[in-house]
């Protein structure tokens, strides 16, 4: 019965959805953790030297790519990868 349930598309699709969610969610946490330190430092620098805003923003937005990776994986899982087609 278990085997049937697993090979059944519904359960697999559910697992795929869980995986996609984890990919985006965990990547989001990672990006957030990365950004918090940079953000604090940038606010500090900009308070002293407002001209640094652009470069500070640049540094702060660097880790944001992480979440896009997670999202790319999710999109592939949800839309492009069809294991039971």
């Amino acid at each position: 019965m278990v085997v049937e349930a697993i090979t059944d598309g519904g359960v697999l699709y559910g697992l795929l959805a869980v995986g996609a969610g984890l990919a985006t969610g965990l990547a989001g946490i990672g990006a957030g953790v990365g950004e918090q330190g940079i953000g604090a430092a940038v606010v500090g620098v900009v308070a002293e030297e407002p001209g640094f805003l652009g470069k500070g923003l640049f540094l702060m937005l660097l880790p944001e790519t992480l979440i896009i990776f997670g999202l790319a994986v999710s999109l592939i899982l949800m839309f492009a990868w069809t294991p039971f087609a």
């Binding site: 944001e64 790519t65 896009i68 990776f69």
Partner: peptide, 12 residues
């Protein structure tokens, strides 16, 4: 590579 993938945010 990550530069290019980063443009996925336009969709996301």
């Amino acid at each position: 590579v990550s530069n290019l993938i980063s443009y996925l945010r336009l969709l996301a």
